[in-house]
């Protein structure tokens, strides 16, 4: 029925998901899996790159799309890693897929961390909960470009050791001499936890921070932001040197559908990374 001209492709369809294969699934904590994806198209597989803090729109064929942060570092190309929490329609469908199944991926989207600005500074990464997903990309980017950064500090808080994402990978970092990896939990019923106890802000006691040469990158639940921000301001951090990732509902990821708006900004293109200064100046953020 269709003639040739009507079948002509929309060139560069911005909504086009590219097929990627689930080549490996690594169990994390309960209801969280790390998916390793490889694009089917070899050109996409070798050309795809991103900035830490960016995300992709992940499609599960027949279920829909959801935004997911890229957990892998662009310094390790070829495989895209996504750490996903099972929660609704798309993520549940994803968890049901067998190994080697195909999914759709488009992106990367969002601004990501301002890497150029971060370089030559100390990097303080503060994570809670699923916040480690985007921050892991930044962490490995910095470690793989170690000479470009001054001190690298990771602070991570969780309720129990069983709730720490990337736990074994992070535990290994504790012994690394060229960074400081501080992990803390509220409690450990098994009694084998060797690192810190208490809330994440207690970890500030173990570091010396020069606010003039340090950038803080935060991602975690709202309650974590509240206390960590207080701590950073107390230490005279400029609001421009505090970077945080904000989450809103997303449908398109490319600044068209409207869903991710905060005040005048669209989280998907103006964010998801905002400086604290920008964040408090978004009208809808006065909370």
């Amino acid at each position: 029925m269709s003639t040739r001209s009507t079948l002509a492709k929309v060139k560069n369809d911005i909504y086009q998901p590219y097929l990627a294969r689930i080549v490996k699934v690594l169990p994390q904590i309960q209801d969280h899996l790390l998916f390793q994806l490889k694009f089917e198209d070899p050109r996409m597989a070798s050309n795809f790159t991103h900035r830490p803090g960016q995300f992709v729109e992940l499609s599960v064929i027949g279920s829909g799309e959801a935004p997911v942060s890229i957990s892998s570092s662009p310094t390790r190309p070829g495989i895209v890693e996504l750490c996903v929490r099972k929660t609704g329609r798309v993520t549940n469908a994803l968890f049901r897929l067998p190994l080697n199944a195909l999914v759709g991926v488009r992106g990367p989207y969002g601004n990501g961390f301002p890497i150029d600005k971060l370089e030559d500074n100390n990097l303080l990464i503060i994570a809670g909960g699923l916040g480690m997903a985007p921050l892991r990309s930044l962490l490995w980017y910095a470690l793989d470009n170690r000479t470009k950064f001054k001190d690298i500090i990771l602070m991570l808080g969780a309720k129990t050791p069983g709730e720490i994402l990337f736990k074994y990978e992070l535990l290994k970092l504790i012994d690394r001499p060229d960074m400081k990896c501080l992990l803390t939990v509220d409690k450990d019923e098994e009694g084998i936890w060797k690192a810190h106890f208490g809330v994440v802000t207690k970890l500030f006691d173990y570091v010396e921070l020069d606010p003039a040469t340090t950038y803080a990158a935060l991602c975690g639940p709202p309650i974590m932001y509240k206390f960590v921000l207080k701590e950073l301001l107390k230490r005279n951090f400029s609001k421009d040197r505090i970077l945080m990732s904000l989450e809103r509902k997303m449908k398109c990821g490319v600044g068209k559908c409207g869903h991710c708006s905060i005040g005048y900004k669209y989280t998907c293109i103006d964010g998801p990374i905002f400086t604290y200064w920008d964040a408090i100046n978004l009208p809808e953020m006065v909370e």
């Binding site: 079948l7 369809d13 086009q16 998901p17 064929i61």
Partner: peptide, 11 residues
């Protein structure tokens, strides 16, 4: 076949 954009109506 994955995702194929539908463009018939656009023209």
């Amino acid at each position: 076949e994955g995702y194929q954009s539908l463009t018939e109506e656009l023209r």
